[in-house]
Amino acid sequence: MTPDDEVLVGRLRQQLKGRRGVSEQRMFGGLCFMVNGNMCVGPWQGSLVVRLDKADHEATQAEPHAGPMNITGKTMRGWALVAPAGIAEDADLARWVGRAVEFVRTLPAK
């Protein structure tokens, strides 16, 4: 993980502290935050990876600072990569994290 990722992990821990069903799992050379066993949010090279409803993919991609999640070379529908400018303020990070947690809670627990 990059130093920026380490800082973001600390901020994510603060955002997710006390929420039920949240766990951390190492993957893709970094750390992912899970909700009820489903991937939810995590850092990626200083940006924030968020999981959201596939049905809202195009609208999410059109939001400021949001772009496609394609770390494998293929865009992953239902995921967005939020640039550092889009999560610079704690309120902005909280909004993205809240949306992701809300969506992931609709998925069956693993």
Rank of each mutant, 00 (worst) to 15 (best):
D90E: 14
N70P: 05
A55I: 09
S23N: 09
A55E: 11
L81V: 02
D4G: 06
H57N: 15
R77C: 03
T60G: 08
A62K: 15
G10M: 06
V104K: 04
D5P: 02
Q45M: 06
A83R: 15
M39V: 07
A100G: 04
P3H: 11
A80I: 11
G46A: 06
P43A: 03
A100I: 03
W96I: 04
E63F: 12
A94L: 13
A109N: 07
V49R: 01
F28L: 12
P64C: 08
G18H: 05
M69T: 02
K17E: 14
G78F: 08
M1D: 07
A91E: 13
S47G: 05
R19V: 05
G67P: 15
V82N: 05
G18F: 06
T2Y: 01
E6S: 08
G21N: 04
E63C: 12
L93Y: 01
G18Y: 07
A83F: 04
E102H: 12
V7A: 08
L8V: 01
E58N: 07
G37L: 14
P64Q: 09
P108D: 09
E24R: 05
C32V: 15
V49E: 00
N36M: 01
F103N: 00
D53C: 10
V22E: 03
V104E: 07
S47P: 01
E63T: 09
P68K: 13
N38P: 12
A55V: 11
G73A: 08
L31I: 14
T75F: 12
V50G: 02
A85T: 01
P43H: 04
E24I: 08
P68M: 12
